[in-house]
Simulated scan of single mutants.
Amino acid sequence: MAAYRICFFNDIPDSRGHDHHVCQRTIEIADATDEGQAIANAIGRFEQLENVSHWRLHARTFECAEIVPTRSIAD
């Protein structure tokens, strides 16, 4: 099992009309068998937390990264 961090982004314009890639929400999935399962779980959680029927109603894209445990210097 692996842990993943999925960040949901939206493009939001500033006062000059320039879009900025802004993170709407970050969800960590602690125990997924693979990236696909982590993404599916995060999408479901995002929809629940945002109270929407489809994640794209509140985000445009997402990025998924595996969380790699860090080791302390003493290890």
Score class of each variant (00 low, 15 high):
A30P: 08
C7Q: 10
F9M: 09
Q37R: 05
S53R: 08
T61E: 08
T70C: 05
R60M: 10
H21Y: 07
A59Y: 07
A65Q: 10
E35R: 12
R45Q: 13
H54E: 13
A32M: 03
R25K: 15
D34F: 00
L57N: 11
D14I: 04
L57V: 11
C64L: 01
I43K: 11
A38E: 08
N10D: 11
V52N: 00
N10F: 04
H58K: 14
I43F: 01
Q37C: 14
Y4I: 01
V22F: 01
D11R: 13
Q24R: 15
G17L: 07
Q24P: 01
H21S: 02
L49R: 15
A59G: 07
T70Y: 05
I43R: 13
E63N: 15
D34L: 11
D31C: 05
T70G: 14
F9R: 13
F9H: 13
D75T: 14
F8R: 06
T61S: 09
L49D: 12
D75Y: 03
A65C: 08
A32E: 07
G17D: 14
H20Q: 07
T26S: 15
F9A: 07
P69E: 10
D31H: 06
E66L: 12
H54N: 11
I73W: 00
A30Q: 10
R71A: 15
A2L: 01
S72H: 09
Q48W: 12
E50V: 00
H20N: 10
I27Y: 09
I73R: 01
F9Q: 06
S72I: 09
I29H: 01
G44T: 09
P69A: 01
C64T: 13
S72R: 13
R5Y: 01
H18D: 15
M1E: 06
I29Q: 02
R71T: 12
Q48I: 13
